[in-house]
Design a binder for these strands. Structure first.
Length: 832
RNA sequence: GCCCGGAUGGCGAAAUUGGCAGACGCAGCGGACUUAAAAUCCGCAGACCGCAAGGUCGUGGGGGUUCAAGUCCCCCUCCGGGCACCA
């Protein structure tokens, strides 16, 4: 048996052996202090939710990050490559309900299981900096930040809508609402209820979050665009209309104040406070408005807000256009949103599609106030929404361009006090309240006498109680834990009540990457000096599904931390990479589709190296990856070939004299290929990241070495060259197949960890081709391939092309009209 | 509806700056080794016509620019993702 296994590449023996050695070497993947003098490199992969099972998306994400980290270590950098757990969240409560396991136990067991999976995959993390967000040592700093933000006026409370399942009698997170129904009760419509909620004032940073995107040129344009749209900055004008009779004002927001003379109604959102007043005196109106609210709600629940038919109801009131003095009717309409702008609009049916649709339906006047800039042009049909035109039917403003009119009208409004230029953002403040158990308790106390009182710093952390019955009853589970709920007011000492909301888990992931730089700090979230050394993150890697929320929150939190003096950086990461999804049989891997491939299975069958390398080989990292198990088998076969090749010549390589001589034609060809491969892979690590072609390049190199097996065997290739070939091959493999590389490194008699070995440098002289092989085309079609000595002049190329056998037979009796020579590339003959 | 990706052999893909389309791998076929198989090694392999030499076509479709287009420009189709009454 021994003989047999000795001859075979066996990841099941190699990999656990090295896994053990690496686990015993605490310094191997450890970040060094700033004093080490090396340049720093912070490579970060998004931390996973500890579901208990790594999936292929994780494997892909971490294989990319680990390859980069290993490469940077070999380039001599001080690398921070940490990992942690986004450990709060609903699944733990669901598991508690289902299995009667406490969320904490369930979560910690899952973390242990996933960490074992990661270690088995050979991912090189610095576990000394591990961060687990559900532990008080971490979440106390969430509370600390919350209090700092409270002091800065960045935290406030307000009434807000929540999803409520009447069957569960509890609040649902947005993700638990499926097609407008409760995920547990698929027939039960989710209701919107008003609750007092905590908010973080992210909108205070809206402009900066937008401007910062311009500096993030290391981020994918797609992500920046998505964030820009999400922030949704829009410049416009606030205009106050006066209600006839009462003298009350309705403030509207418009981006097209130049169309003000085309206003033929004012439209209010059904939830607008003035509508409530109108309804108080008019039961009939109230019934109709309630109907509109119901329609909006239904549409929102059904998830097609944009598709609902426009409905409205006239209030019978009139509002006066402050520019023209003209009264227009006030309507309430279901397409007006209370939470954007002022919840009221001026309706200009002549120049807005939605207003046009509404006015047509209800017979409201449609007026043209913008004419084409070219007086000879035909008047375009209404609604005419372009801003490329001049004002008409607009009194003294007639003839002005839209842009000029906007400016003039804004100035007038400001002067006369009925409005001004203004900027509106689509971005809303961040509601962080969750009526949930498994999250960070919000560190606030409700006192009868003193009102809202923050928990003093010295009383942090507010610890999540361990013994909590997770039930499906309504309200926050923490509200039913007497020991937690009842406390005393820090100000007056009287009995008081703790806040029972917990924080959104996006809070945890908004700053965890700072904690990695100083994970054990008990006195601060982190030491600013340590963070200043490591930040910004040099490369952040994760799924594009986090392009908006997580990455906006993280940017916001960084700016807050900067303003607290904790970091000099305004942005957390200079470069962001978003990898593609893992697909199988044409669909994203998911339990419901039954197309999930377990990483454990792959590792058991083919080994960690083959699994990881396949994840890099099957597609470029930014594209979707189609998982084909036969492909993993192919990579595994390739690794076996490498193993056989290196072990076959290991003894020769070990014995090679370092001062020996390494020439010979066979060696020159192989060394040329070797140095070309080094150059290709090094270059890819520096920018393009097409690791699929890196793996292919290594395969080509191995194919070529193997094709020269006879020369290697016969001694035609000097031992020193063999040594360089194999040694470098193993080094190139190290970021992609770390176990096999470590094993073969040792096999070649090298001392010390391959991770500490120097990344090979391509020698341009050795890489250079001695001959140029170039295509000759006739009229753009390939006719022949000819050779000239490398570096030959254009004239030599032309001569060689014209001397080609096939070229000669093809040009007989014809004339060469033109010869195009691209030096070093090709020759094209234009022949008639 | 708007914004972003993408479409290349039987399959995953490559072609980095407009310059030999299909590298590398999978599946397939033929051969060597073997009593046999597995494993391994060698070879073939875009489609069509042809015994062959060779030829014609070919990167979702249509048009264009160019000596030369998978790559650039215009129009269109399909697939994936994001946003969606944002005033």
């Amino acid at each position: 048996m021994a003989d047999d296994t000795e001859q075979r590449y066996d990841p099941a023996t190699i990999e656990p052996k090295w896994q053990q050695r690496w686990a015993a070497d605490a310094a191997l993947y450890a970040a060094e202090p700033a004093s080490c003098g090396k340049p720093k490199y912070y490579v970060l992969e998004m931390l996973p939710y500890p579901s208990g099972q790594l999936h292929m998306g994780h494997v892909r994400n971490y294989s990319i990050g680990d390859a980069l980290a290993r490469h940077m270590w070999m380039r001599g950098y001080n690398v921070l490559h940490p990992m942690g757990w986004d450990a709060f969240g609903l699944p733990a409560e669901n598991a508690a309900l289902k299995n009667n396991t406490p969320p904490r136990e369930w979560t910690l067991a899952n973390i242990a299981a996933m960490r074992r999976q990661m270690e088995r995959l050979g991912l090189g993390y610095d576990w000394a900096t591990e961060v687990t967000t559900c532990l008080p040592e971490y979440y106390r700093w969430n509370q600390w930040f919350f209090l700092r933000m409270y002091e800065k006026g960045l935290v406030y409370r307000k009434q807000s809508k929540v999803n409520w399942c009447p069957e569960c009698a509890t609040v649902l997170a947005n993700e638990q609402v499926v097609n407008g129904c409760c995920w547990r009760h698929e027939e039960t419509l989710v209701e919107q209820r008003d609750l007092e909620q905590w908010f973080l004032r992210i909108t205070a940073y809206a402009q900066e979050l937008l401007d910062g995107l311009d500096t993030l040129d290391g981020w994918p344009e797609k992500v920046r665009t998505m964030q820009r749209n999400w922030i949704g900055r829009s410049e416009g004008t606030d205009v106050d209309f006066t209600i006839e009779g009462s003298g009350e004002r309705i403030r509207v927001f418009t981006t097209r104040v130049d169309t003000i003379f085309g206003v033929t109604s004012v439209q209010l959102a059904p939830q607008h406070p003035l509508v409530k007043d109108f309804c108080a005196a008019d039961a009939e109106l109230k019934a109709k408005v309630d109907g509109l609210i119901e329609e909006q709600k239904k549409a929102r629940e059904a998830g097609d807000v944009g598709a609902i038919e426009k409905h409205g109801v006239a209030t019978g009131r009139w509002a006066v256009n402050p520019y023209s003095g003209e009264p227009v009717p006030i309507w309430v309409a279901n397409y007006i949103l209370m939470d954007y702008g002022t919840g009221a609009i001026m309706s200009v049916p002549g120049h807005d599609e939605r207003d046009f649709e509404f006015a047509t339906k209800y017979g409201i006047e449609i007026r043209r106030v913008i004419a084409p800039a070219d007086p000879d042009a035909e008047e375009p049909a209404l609604p005419f929404t372009s801003e490329d035109g001049i004002l008409t039917n607009s009194g003294e403003y007639n003839g002005l361009s839209c842009e000029a009119a906007q400016k003039k009208l804004q100035e007038l409004a400001a002067r006369a006090g009925f409005g001004q230029a203004t900027v509106t953002f689509r971005l809303k403040d961040w509601g962080v309240s969750r009526q949930r158990y498994w999250g960070t308790p919000i560190p606030m106390i409700h006192c009868e006498k003193d009102g809202l009182v923050p928990v003093p710093d010295e009383q942090l952390p507010v610890v999540l109680p361990a013994q909590v019955a997770i039930t499906q009853q309504g309200g926050s589970p923490l509200g039913r834990v007497a020991e937690f709920l009842h406390t005393t007011c820090p100000k007056c000492g009287a009995p008081a009540r703790r806040e029972t909301d917990t924080m959104d888990t996006f809070v945890d992931s908004s700053w965890y990457f700072y904690r990695y730089t100083d994970a054990k700090n008990a006195g601060m979230p982190f030491d600013p000096a340590k963070a200043a050394y490591w930040f910004p993150i040099d490369q952040y890697i994760g799924g594009v599904e986090h392009a908006i929320l997580h990455l906006i929150y993280s940017r916001f939190w960084t700016k807050v931390m900067r303003d607290l003096g904790l970091t000099p950086n305004s942005e957390p990461a200079t470069r962001l990479f978003t990898q593609g999804m893992v697909i199988k049989d044409g669909a994203k891997m998911s339990k419901s589709k039954g197309n999930v491939v377990s990483p454990d299975d792959m590792v058991a069958r083919y080994g960690a190296d083959a699994t990881r390398m396949y994840a890099l080989f099957a597609a470029p990292p930014d594209r979707d990856l189609d998982w084909q198990e036969d492909g993993v088998a192919g990579v595994s076969r390739f690794l076996a070939r490498v193993w056989r090749l290196v072990t076959k010549y290991a003894a020769v390589a070990r014995a090679a004299e370092c001062d020996g001589h390494s020439d010979g034609a066979a060696a020159a060809g192989l060394l040329r290929k070797l140095h070309q491969t080094i150059a290709k892979i090094t270059q890819d690590f520096e920018g393009r990241w097409h690791f699929n072609t890196c793996v292919a390049a290594i395969m080509e190199l191995v194919n070529e070495i193997q094709a020269a097996d006879a020369q290697l065997d016969s001694g035609a290739v000097p031992p020193l060259a063999i040594r360089e070939l194999l040694r470098t091959l193993v080094l190139l493999l190290a970021p992609f197949a770390p176990y096999l590389a470590a094993e073969l490194w040792e096999e070649l008699g090298e001392e010390g960890a391959i991770l500490r070995a120097q990344w090979p440098v391509s020698d341009a002289d050795l890489a250079r081709e001695s001959e140029l092989e170039f295509p000759v085309q006739i009229n753009g079609k390939l006719v022949e391939v000819v050779r000239v000595p490398a570096g030959a002049a254009s004239a030599a190329m032309e001569a060689a092309a014209l001397a080609g056998e096939r070229v000669k037979t093809r040009t007989v009796g014809k004339s060469v009209v033109k010869v195009i020579v691209i030096p070093g590339k090709l020759v094209n003959l234009v022949v008639k």
